[in-house]
Write a protein that binds this DNA or RNA. Structure first.
Lengths: 97, 97
DNA sequence: TTTCTATTTGGCAAAATTGCAAAATAGATT
DNA sequence: AATCTATTTTGCAATTTTGCCAAATAGAAA
């Protein structure tokens, strides 16, 4: 595997890793058509708020979601709609199991 | 997060996890239009053959690739073409970084 | 300013992933 | 049968990921 190709797959794998967690998939689903704060997402999932913050950070760093500060809150929204197509495809894979 | 939803995202996350490794993304790319044996893939990537075997097993268990035995060799091929669209989308995400 | 409220960060232990080496299998060839 | 050859499995140590708690920040409200 040559160096450029290797780098390409390495970068791509980072994106897949960012998606490879049930809580993060839930977040994507939840913010696809409405903005939600860290606290709201925390309550929906039922996890410690620091844990939620870290999950959001991973998605943020990969430019999958984006946060907008309003007063004390940071509202997150989905930035990459094609991620939803990923998920439909993933479902096809699951159903063939 | 209710139980059914949780299960759905848990299953989806498994598929994303299967894709979240540079070697496994390379494999998918390599077998998308030609069948390759474990040994051939091992040489292309430059990894221990037992490591390659494990990567292939992960993709196989998730029905992403399928192996066909011919003589002593097992030739793998891509089963889920929509995975390639995943990768195009992942590239869009990367380029926005 | 002091006090809330929302969010992030650091620390840490538990769990999962990774990759090599060695041993085990499977089956083809001699 | 014995011997190759390809692949898988086991064992294990190193690395990474995860999630809670406690502490730190940021900024709004009183």
């Amino acid at each position: 595997m040559n160096n450029d190709i290797e780098k390409e797959f390495l970068e791509q794998a980072e994106v897949f890793k960012a998606l490879a967690h049930p809580t993060r998939l839930f977040i994507i689903h939840a913010v696809k058509d409405k903005k939600l704060s860290v606290k709201e997402l925390t309550e929906l999932v039922g996890v410690d708020i620091s844990t939620m913050s870290k999950h959001l950070d991973i998605l943020k760093k990969n430019k999958i979601i984006k946060g907008e500060k309003v007063k004390n809150f940071i509202y997150y929204r989905l930035m990459i709609p094609c991620v939803l197509e990923f998920m439909h495809c993933a479902n096809k894979v699951i159903n063939k199991k």
